[in-house]
């Protein structure tokens, strides 16, 4: 790999109680690239994704290392709130808070104690522009975020995550609740965003992975089967299971 690594997992294992849902996951997510995690339902891809910024702490036991800037962030003494500001997350469904568009975007920033109006205003515009939503909402920043359409809400959630300037964004099927038009808008947005940060996304949509991801990891029953450039995975995968999954033999 020529590119730098933004995040690396070493022997990552996730257990729900006694149940092993992810075994020995070793992944190096390249910086400023989009990496897609694909696999059938129950393959453990969402579980792995959520473990990366410690969102599974309350439900599961996560073992192994998650290295970020040379620090293993999978340790109790690491401040999870800082981690989540650096490694943001966008969910399956849009999750706007019941407040104005403006307040939604700067919510994370307020947590860091930022009060300067000029900084906040500037960051709102910057984040909404990056999420390709600025032109649609610039005149109604004080309106409730709940009045936006589903696609707009999801881009708002991306903007909200961007506003704290994370280095990595985790996306858990970010377009699964959206129509095709909104989906392609979000995909375009992602391609723009990777100039500034690293994106790791779980998707059920194979076209989406092949269209927008630079790298693809295929998971099956809790194991990482194959991780390579997206073209390689889709055109000539090395593993039979990957080929079977992509051709629709299971999953």
């Amino acid at each position: 790999m020529q590119t730098k690594t933004a995040l690396e997992t070493k022997n990552l294992q996730v257990l729900y109680g006694e149940k092993h849902v992810a075994h020995d996951i070793n992944l190096k997510f390249p910086q400023n690239q989009i990496t897609a995690l694909i696999g059938a339902s129950g393959s453990g891809k969402s579980t792995v994704l959520r473990s990366l910024n410690r969102m599974n702490d309350d439900f599961a036991t996560v073992k192994g290392e998650i290295n970020f800037h040379g620090v293993n962030i999978n340790q109790p003494k690491v401040n999870v709130y800082r981690v989540r500001q650096q490694i943001g997350m966008v969910f399956q469904q849009p999750t706007p808070f019941p407040m104005s568009i403006y307040e939604n975007v700067i919510y994370g920033l307020r947590l860091t104690g930022e009060k300067d109006r000029r900084v906040l205003d500037q960051r709102v515009e910057e984040s909404l522009r990056q999420a390709a939503l600025w032109d649609e909402v610039r005149d109604q920043l004080k309106a409730s975020a709940l009045a936006l359409s589903g696609g707009q809400q999801q881009r708002l959630c991306i903007a909200r995550t961007l506003a704290v300037r994370p280095e990595i964004i985790l996306m858990d099927e970010p377009t699964s609740a959206l129509d095709p038009v909104s989906t392609s808008q979000i995909e375009d947005t992602l391609v723009q965003l990777k100039k500034h940060l690293t994106i790791i996304m779980v998707t059920h949509n194979m076209q989406q992975a092949s269209r927008s991801a630079d790298w693809t990891a295929f998971m099956h029953q809790g194991h990482l089967i194959e991780f390579d450039k997206t073209d390689t995975i889709f055109m000539n995968p090395h593993e039979q299971k990957t080929a079977d999954y992509l051709s629709g033999k299971f999953g």
């Binding site: 969102m55 989540r84 966008v90 999750t95 808070f97 019941p98 959630c157 995550t161």
Partner: peptide
């Protein structure tokens, strides 16, 4: 919705903050 809480946690909010600032108003 559960996702609202997740969204708050994902932004780096503590559980108490999620409860008072997001769940309670909603």
């Amino acid at each position: 919705p559960y996702l609202q809480r997740q969204a708050g946690l994902g932004l780096g909010m503590s559980k108490w903050r999620v409860t008072t600032k997001i769940v309670l108003p909603a």
